[in-house]
């Protein structure tokens, strides 16, 4: 056994490093457990919400009620995540949960668009919950800048919003299948309004840019649906004369 005290490496250096690594692994694993739970609950919420594609809009309130209940489970888990995550610097670990928080955010946005969370935002289908409103539903701060704690970031909200757009483009076609010719118009306008918003952002070459670039195809998809309907004179009459 070489004499360590006289060697190049003070053994305390690597003992200390290993301690820190072990702490990190323990902390990360605790986060992962919570995030896995959240993932499961989010899948449940998404499964419920996807019933909207096969439910006539007059009856979506059942879907919305069920989704709200599933989202309440997500909220409980997010509260636990928030407590755990806030113990350490936010950006040291945020890659563990950022994808899941986007998905959670998307379920809330979709549910809100279907007129869930009636007490939040304006009443009626087709509403966009703001980042503050989503934060309110989740009971977490948003876009935190002056303190280092768990929160919902702008990027997470915006990426969730892109996912909402994709979901709605699908919903536009499925609404037609269900005989609802009014909803595609509503979706078309909504997507265009959101797209107009995105187009004023100065995006860099990152994941957000890539996802946002896809919105224009969703705009076109929904316009094609509206076009198909108008060609066959299927659009609601009151819409045509405004």
């Amino acid at each position: 056994m070489p004499n360590h005290a006289a060697g190049m490496v003070d053994p305390a250096i690597f003992e200390h490093l290993q301690e820190k690594i072990d702490e990190d692994v323990t902390f990360r694993d605790a986060l992962r457990d919570i995030v896995q739970q959240l993932e499961k609950q989010t899948r449940t919420a998404q499964a419920i919400l996807s019933r909207a594609h096969s439910t006539p809009s007059a009856q979506t309130s059942d879907v919305v009620r069920a989704a709200e209940a599933a989202i309440r489970d997500e909220i409980t888990t997010v509260a636990g995540l928030s407590v755990q995550a806030s113990k350490q610097p936010y950006y040291k670990w945020n890659d563990v949960w950022t994808r899941k928080m986007q998905d959670v955010c998307q379920t809330i946005l979709f549910c809100g668009w279907l007129n869930g969370f009636a007490q939040v935002g304006q009443d009626g289908a087709g509403k966009l919950l703001t980042i503050e409103e989503v934060g309110g539903v989740l009971n977490v701060p948003v876009n935190l800048k002056d303190s280092d704690a768990f929160h919902l970031t702008i990027e997470e909200y915006l990426l969730a919003l892109v996912s909402l757009i994709e979901e709605l483009a699908r919903l536009a076609r499925n609404s037609v299948t269900l005989g609802d010719f009014r909803r595609p118009l509503q979706i078309s306008q909504f997507i265009k309004d959101v797209h107009a918003g995105f187009s004023i952002l100065n995006l860099k070459n990152d994941i957000l840019r890539k996802r946002v670039d896809g919105i224009k195809y969703r705009v076109k998809e929904v316009e094609d649906v509206v076009y198909d309907l108008s060609l066959r004179d299927l659009l609601p009459k009151d819409e045509e004369h405004t």
């Binding site: 118009l185 306008q189 224009k216 705009v219 316009e223 509206v226 076009y227």
Partner: peptide, 21 residues
């Protein structure tokens, strides 16, 4: 609020708007 200013169907045909958003 947006319900009042829905675009007309004919306007929706206008594909050139696609690139001019």
């Amino acid at each position: 609020s947006r319900a009042g200013n829905k675009r007309s169907a004919t306007e929706a045909f206008d594909k050139s708007k696609m690139d001019n958003r």
